[in-house]
Amino acid sequence: MVDTGGKAPVYDIPGVILAGGLSRRMGGGDKSLLPLGGRPILSHVIRRLTPQVQTIYLNANGDPERFAPFGLPVLPDTVSDNPGPLAGVLAGLDRAAEDGADWIVTVAADTPFFPKNLVRKLADAVEKERYPISLAATQDESGEQHRHPTFGLWAVTLRDDLRQALKDGTRKVVAWTDRHGAATARFPAMPFEPFFNINTAEDMLLAEDILREEV
């Protein structure tokens, strides 16, 4: 961990923003580029993640120039047919291996309010439970736990196993992580669900309300 002069901790690992989805419920296109509070959703995600990691990569497919204003390296999926977020995790793991990193952390590009201590708690869960993966979770008022598997810490040593799993047709994140075991980093779901993601126009209105409350 790097000393940041009392600010949020910066971990010596890369962060990967997963923006490779098809955004079908928002009519297609790049959901992360839609405006929230006068700035693209992606800007909020970058701002949230930057104090927590060493560097940031963006997993996205298609023309990378549309993301040029953000100044991030764009990592396309390395497998075909848009197999989902696991392909973005793999792209991040492969880049991390090239850079000599041992871990990556992933966040979703449509979730602008994830916790500011996300990486610290994911890292603490890995250290405590000794798994090669940790995933975020929240608990609702009834006590039921909800995992958020696009928010995770992943060991680079898993990349070849993940590549084979994708070739074999695995698509659900938890179907793969459950085979390896995953630690759980738990976060409060109040005053709002921090892993709330924007999928519809109604969600965008709710996000605007949350943003106003956060300011």
Rank of each mutant, 00 (worst) to 15 (best):
P69H: 11
N197E: 11
P9F: 08
T157A: 15
E214D: 02
I41G: 10
K31W: 06
F114K: 03
G15Y: 05
V105P: 08
A108K: 10
G5D: 02
E127N: 10
A182H: 15
D140C: 00
S43K: 09
T157E: 15
T200Y: 12
A175F: 09
K128G: 00
A68G: 04
G143A: 00
R66V: 14
G143E: 00
A8C: 04
P9W: 06
V53H: 07
E208V: 00
S43V: 04
T111L: 03
D161K: 12
G143S: 00
K7N: 12
S43E: 11
K167Q: 11
G6A: 01
G152V: 00
T157S: 14
V105R: 02
A155S: 10
K167D: 11
R39G: 03
D94A: 06
E98G: 03
E213F: 08
T50A: 15
N59F: 13
L34D: 06
V16L: 12
G37P: 09
K116I: 10
E193Q: 12
V16Y: 01
R171G: 02
G6F: 01
E214H: 02
T150W: 08
L49K: 14
L18G: 01
Y57V: 09
W154H: 05
P73R: 13
L162W: 05
G62A: 05
A97Q: 12
E202I: 08
D110E: 15
A165N: 12
P40C: 09
G169N: 06
P14L: 01
V10P: 00
L18R: 01
A155N: 06
K167E: 15
I104S: 05
I13F: 07
V173Y: 01
L153S: 05
G152S: 15
T111P: 03
N82F: 09
E98A: 10
D81C: 07
P194K: 04
P188R: 11
L90C: 06
V79S: 08
G169W: 05
F195Y: 05
L158Y: 03
R179M: 10
P14E: 01
A125D: 04
